[in-house]
Write a protein that binds this DNA or RNA. Structure first.
Lengths: 149, 149
DNA sequence: TCAAATAGTTGCAATTTGCAAATATAAGAG
DNA sequence: CTCTTATATTTGCAAATTGCAACTATTTGA
């Protein structure tokens, strides 16, 4: 009841390790862990700008700019000028980028399901619903998870 | 039921942001995020060696060695040669290191409780129990969360 | 007693990071 | 319409982080 931090710290660490390993396994030296986060978020959003993705990930925009350039050079991400505002670049995944994102997604998802498979149906449902609940609560709380300005 | 990855990806990301912000807020330029992870794990284990902490965090031992040196130079971590084996260094927090770790712990814990406070008692309990359950399942699963050899 | 194993540290060289300053474009005031 | 200001993104640069290979120091075991 008290030590909530421990739970989340360990969870986040373990998921991070799993994520990193999966990333290594499915896409070899193709993309780094942070780059995989970028692919993930571009895929998730609808015609996002650089700012939007960088903001969602809490990344410094200059660091982000360079990482996107790397991904674009590798042919995984495409930058399209916004039709109504040339300052803005719309980001999208190329077919190759999408393939990598999908590979990572399937691998991570399979690992997670493997872990959940040790539980009863009821427990599994409860765990999933709980995390959903917590994510929603986090989203609503503006005191946190808002990247610094 | 299907898309478990999304849930964990977002959870881990948001907790990461929260963790980072807390770290900035309580200890200013004192320690970086990775260094805070090191303090956390040293505090958690009982007379740990370098290998044990680096292993738990999935960090490369050489990177870890340098980070520990930085922390030792700052006076937050102490390295004590193992009495029975001089190759091994036992790591421990200095009072200053412990103070920082405690400050981070309290801040993160408070934030998390703030988020949980928007839920009913029942929901709160369920969420906490669920994460406990999942962490245990992860620990048992040897297919993941085992840093690459 | 000496060859292998183990713990940890350094020498690089590449990558990543973020602040400050620059560029490019758009929007608004007059 | 023109000039100031705001917004989006990129670069310069210098510091911090990373990891592989090689090295040192100790211990273990044949």
């Amino acid at each position: 009841m008290e030590n909530v931090r421990n739970l989340f710290q360990i969870l986040a660490r373990n998921f991070g390790l799993l994520n990193e390993q999966c990333c290594d396994n499915c896409c070899g030296q193709e993309v780094s862990l942070v780059q995989s986060h970028i692919l993930y978020e571009i895929n998730r959003q609808h015609q996002p700008s650089m700012q939007e993705i960088a903001g969602a990930l809490g990344m410094d925009i200059t660091t982000f700019s360079r990482q996107v350039k790397t991904l674009a050079d590798k042919g995984f991400v495409k930058k399209t000028p916004h039709p109504a505002d040339n300052r803005i670049n719309i980001l999208s995944l190329t077919p190759e980028g999408l393939a990598i994102e999908n590979a990572i997604h399937l691998t991570v998802n399979a690992q997670l399901h493997g872990i959940l498979s040790t539980m009863s149906e009821f427990e599994k449902d409860t765990v999933i619903r709980s995390i959903q609940l917590f994510n929603d609560a986090m989203q609503k709380s503006d005191s946190c998870c808002v990247p610094p300005k």
